[in-house]
Amino acid sequence: MKELTITTDCPEASRTLGRAIGERLRAGDVVALWGELGAGKTFLTGGIAQGLGVPEEIPVTSPTFTIINEYEGRVRLYHLDLYRIGDVDELETLPWREALFGSGAAVVEWPERLGGYLPDERVDIHIEIRDVTARSFRLVFGTKSLEERFGDLDKTL
């Protein structure tokens, strides 16, 4: 399956990448963000939200405390953060199925905590810290159609 690596030198460029991803997202899409604390997962999600048409004055805040946040855009965005979750059983009191398999698009931070519930039809974005402000984003596409939709992202930036 095709991969795509995009490097950015500053937060603005990372935000632009997020926006480009958001512009191509559709209902039912799942984006899994992989990366350590401070990699910029929530920051990238802020760009994705803008690309989905969430008004700029609504900031995408860390969902670590609330686990799932929702935003109204062209498509509803579910922003999940499983940082505090040990395994998927601990999610039972939260509407995570609706978030992942419902009518919106989902961005998931700490997706490893979902184990087998993480759908295969997804875009993985592996974020690496290159220096304080520079990042590299490795996108891996779970299906042919996702690859077709996102495969030329680097050419539009």
């Binding site: 910029g40 929530t42 304080v132």
Partner: peptide, 17 residues
């Protein structure tokens, strides 16, 4: 009057790295 604390978290992450 808004706040942002994600940058300092990242700075410490980079320091530790």
């Amino acid at each position: 009057l808004d706040f942002s604390f994600s940058g300092i978290k990242t700075a410490v992450a980079y320091f530790v790295k």
